[in-house]
Amino acid sequence: MLLGVIVACEIGFWVVLAAGLVARYPLRRPRLGAALLVCVPLVDLVLLAASALDLRRGATADVTHGLAAAYLGFSVAFGHSMVRWADQRFAHRFAGGPPPVKPPRHGWARTRHEWREWGKGLLGWAIACALLGAAIVWVDDAERTRELTNWIGRLSLAIVIWLVAFPVWETIFPRRARR
């Protein structure tokens, strides 16, 4: 059931985001659009409440509980960037705004970009791990929360791989502009 809530929240995120942008640009209702965009994080609160309620009712944590925490952490860390990304494209398409900003392709600007993105990933990791740790403490039953502990390890491995594969790699071997 929690997997269904995660999917519904992901769909809800994009629906609320699209509604806010449609109201802001094609419908020319910027205040309504801003109000809808402010509601985007409420979708995350629904997921948090559903996951906590499921654990509180005595469920044994499984992959979906860890996925919910990871989704929440990375949604908080990358949510603003995703809204800005979509807003730039909508403004360009429907309001005559400038073309969307593309990430740098090479040089130190690319390296800084990779470090900045990894920093957001690190924030998402920290939030997800804090939520997982809070759930482990809240449930207070090692047998029921073993999967949450495993998720902390998986997320930690993923953030280290990301660190080495992108920002560190770009720092050591920065991409050069084609001539």
Rank of each mutant, 00 (worst) to 15 (best):
G96W: 13
G96L: 11
G96E: 13
G96I: 09
G97Y: 10
P98G: 09
P98V: 10
P99I: 07
P100R: 06
V101L: 12
K102R: 14
K102T: 14
K102F: 11
P103L: 11
P103K: 12
P104S: 13
P104I: 05
R105I: 11
R105G: 15
H106C: 09
H106M: 07
H106G: 04
G107A: 10
G107E: 07
W108Q: 13
R110T: 01
R110W: 09
R110C: 03
T111C: 13
R112W: 14
R112V: 13
H113R: 11
E114Y: 05
E114H: 11
W115H: 08
W115F: 15
R116H: 15
R116W: 15
E117W: 14
E117H: 15
W118M: 09
W118R: 07
W118F: 12
K120P: 04
G121P: 06
G121H: 05
L122C: 08
L123N: 03
G124A: 12
G124H: 07
W125N: 02
W125P: 02
W125R: 00
W125L: 03
W125F: 11
A126F: 08
A126P: 01
I127W: 02
A128D: 04
A128N: 05
A128Q: 03
C129K: 02
C129H: 01
C129M: 03
C129Y: 00
A130R: 01
A130L: 13
L131T: 03
L131S: 01
L132C: 05
L132N: 00
G133M: 04
G133P: 00
G133F: 05
A134E: 08
A135P: 00
I136E: 02
I136H: 00
W138I: 02
W138H: 12
V139L: 05
V139R: 01
V139E: 01
D140L: 06
D140A: 14
A142W: 13
A142K: 13
A142C: 10
T145V: 10
T145N: 01
T145F: 01
R146A: 11
E147I: 06
E147K: 07
L148C: 04
L148T: 00
L148G: 02
T149V: 14
T149Q: 14
T149A: 14
T149D: 12
G153L: 14
R154Y: 14
R154F: 14
R154V: 15
R154K: 13
L155H: 02
S156W: 05
S156R: 08
S156L: 06
L157I: 15
A158C: 11
I159R: 01
I159D: 04
I159L: 11
V160M: 12
V160L: 15
V160E: 07
I161H: 08
L163W: 04
L163P: 04
